[in-house]
Amino acid sequence: MSNHEITLTINGETVTRTVEARTLLVHFIREDLSLTGTHIGCDTTSCGACTVLVDGKPVKSCTMFAVQAEGADIETIESLAAGGSLHPLQEGFWEKHGLQCGYCTPGMIMSAKGFLAEHPNPTEDEIRHGISGNLCRCTGYNKIVEAIQYAAEKLQSAEAGGE
């Protein structure tokens, strides 16, 4: 059983910690770093409640060891409103009632963030497939889709405004 010192960036902050090799990234984030916005919902890489961005890509943090994140840039839900104002996805989920119990929400939002980075102008069908790795038991997904559409439009118009 090996322990490893790892250094990585999380939500813009560089941290160094010693972890056991088998420590799952999600436990590292939740327990070692006390960032409890990232959740755990299954054992089989099925539910996506633990989704975070690793170097910009959404992945399931229960299916990666913390030691593998050495040198990586990780973003969790806690990073999104860091500037003091809500991210368009957070706004969208609030405006469109894209959440109920809130448990899947952080993973869903981080998954959508990664998705929108690659599909800035998605169709409804693309959105539905794009979040198919994230389970929600409350909403029936209609309003999550609307929330992501809201964010896509907002991000698009922000980009157009900036050019």
Binding site: R30, L35, G37, E78, G102, T105
Partner: peptide, 13 residues
């Protein structure tokens, strides 16, 4: 919603 969309919910775990 503000607490949930910012990852500030407080669940048992």
């Amino acid at each position: 919603d503000p607490r949930f969309i910012q990852g500030k919910g407080n669940y048992v775990d």
